[in-house]
Computed example of a mutant assay.
Amino acid sequence: MNPILQAQQSHKSIRQYTEQPIDDALLRQLIQSAQGAASSSFIQAYSLVQVTNKENRAKIAALAGGQKWIESAAEFLIICADLTRVEYCSIEEGLGELEGNAEHFIAATTDATFMAQNLMLGAESVGLGAVFIGGIRNDPAQVAEMLNLPKQVYPIFGLCLGYPDAEPDLKPRFPVDVILHKDSYDSSRCKNDVTAYDAQIHAYYQSRDENQKNSNWSAQTAGAVQKKKREHMLSFLQQQGFLKR
């Protein structure tokens, strides 16, 4: 198989790392390569904050729900949607300040996410392990204050990078036929698709080498989504200048 396709299909979230540091030149090369990701209208509306301060890492780990790998990873980056440069050029070109349009929020968020996925894939291609940390959104205001994030910037998620000290099992994804619709969306498939996938994931959880459990995709997903509403996010985003209209 093509090595890129193989790498894409082999992704595993890594939460245990060796003490080996990541060479700074390699990190910068990975970030530069990640910048090759697609960008909406070439706005490149993202920034990364490299968190090296141990006290701040510990605080963020606690805010994220006790995710200790934030502290043990060789590198921890905060991926931010960033419209500051976009607003600057808009003002300079006589088109005024940004007004918090939903479209601009979507463009910045997708720009940053495309870049971050490229960064993870590149890191994995050179033998590093990684995991995204959505838990920073438990208290984004405190994270923003800690990192001195200005208006028009918000932290989307964190990224742990390091050399793996574990080899977790590979989780099976939805079959392509579940997520691929032809010409129009077929809602009638949902029940059967989810039921079949629940059985597959239950078998996976029962067979893996570590952390076996009696669960399935529906139970995990419903709990994750309904217990992580983070209703503070809208007001925080509006305070940062997003989603005002």
Rank of each mutant, 00 (worst) to 15 (best):
R57K: 15
A58G: 01
A58P: 00
I60G: 04
A61L: 03
A62D: 13
A64E: 05
G65N: 11
G66K: 09
Q67L: 12
W69G: 01
I70Q: 01
A74W: 00
E75T: 13
F76P: 00
F76Y: 14
D82M: 08
L83W: 05
T84I: 06
T84G: 04
V86I: 14
V86C: 11
E87W: 02
Y88G: 08
S90C: 12
I91Q: 15
E92L: 14
G96C: 08
G96M: 06
G96D: 08
E97A: 14
E97L: 07
L98P: 08
L98H: 05
G100S: 08
G100F: 11
N101D: 12
A102G: 02
F105P: 02
A108C: 04
T109A: 15
T109R: 05
T109N: 12
T110N: 09
T113M: 10
T113K: 05
T113L: 09
T113N: 07
N118L: 07
L119Q: 01
G122V: 03
A123Y: 02
E124V: 12
L128Y: 01
A130V: 04
F132G: 10
G135H: 03
N138W: 08
D139K: 12
D139T: 02
P140T: 09
A141S: 14
Q142G: 01
V143L: 11
M146Q: 13
N148V: 09
N148S: 15
L149M: 11
L149Q: 10
L149G: 06
I156R: 01
L161T: 04
Y163V: 13
Y163T: 13
D165H: 02
D169E: 15
P175Q: 04
V176N: 03
D177K: 14
V178T: 15
